Simulated assay, not measured.
Amino acid sequence: MIVVYGIKENLNPIKAKLSNVIHGCMRSVLGMPEDKRAHRFVPLEKEDFYYPGGRTDAYTVIEINMMAGRKPETQRTLIKSLFQKLESQLSLAPADVEITIKEQAPYQWGFRGITGDEANDLKYKVNV
């Protein structure tokens, strides 16, 4: 699951394209299937979104929650791919984007009535 935060006036107009860019990177780097998109957008009022100096109102936070297992190199590649694609396709400057990957053990994921360590029919690999 991916959660994206930003100031609503800047985030709302680009949500669909931003979702496409993120999912494209998830597919190309992690091998996620086309139908495995789980994105949540949290558009905030400017007064509810504090961010570091040197950023603009386009500042966007992307939190990627996933089952543990991806190699550090794979995670780095995902982050760098996101920075590159967000800049080239949405003109989001790397300084205005923060990306975090939060990993949880498969037994800490619950979906379709089972835990992630019980799933044996995933259409993608976790250990890449």
Score class of each variant (00 low, 15 high):
H39I: 06
G54H: 01
N65G: 14
Q89A: 11
F41L: 01
E73G: 03
L86G: 01
M26V: 10
F41H: 05
R37W: 00
D35I: 04
G24V: 08
I79R: 06
I79V: 15
A38P: 01
A38C: 05
Y51N: 02
F49D: 03
L86R: 07
R37D: 00
P43A: 07
F41W: 02
V29R: 04
Q84A: 13
A58D: 15
V61D: 00
Q75P: 00
G69V: 05
L78I: 11
A38M: 05
I22M: 05
M66V: 10
K71H: 12
F49N: 04
I64G: 00
S88M: 11
N20G: 15
S81M: 12
E45D: 14
G24Q: 09
L30M: 05
S81K: 09
R55W: 00
V61A: 00
P72T: 11
L30E: 02
L30C: 02
Y59H: 09
E87T: 04
E47T: 13
Q75R: 14
G53Y: 11
R27E: 15
Q84N: 13
D57M: 07
I62Y: 01
E73Q: 12
E45F: 06
Q89D: 14
V21P: 04
S28M: 14
G24D: 11
M67I: 14
G69W: 08
V21Y: 05
H39G: 00
P43W: 04
S88Y: 10
H23P: 07
R40V: 13
K46N: 04
E47N: 11
P33K: 07
E47W: 03
E45G: 04
G54C: 01
M67Y: 08
G54Y: 00
T60A: 03
D48C: 14
L86M: 09
P52V: 03
Y50M: 12
M32D: 07
S28W: 06
D48L: 14
E34D: 14
R40S: 12
L86H: 08
F49G: 03
V42W: 05
P72K: 08
N65M: 12
L82R: 04
F41D: 02
T60E: 02
K80R: 12
V61K: 01
P43F: 01
P72G: 03
A38H: 11
M66Q: 12
L44G: 06
F49E: 04
D48Y: 13
H23R: 06
K46T: 06
L44A: 07
Q75C: 07
E73I: 10
T56A: 03
R40N: 10
I62N: 00
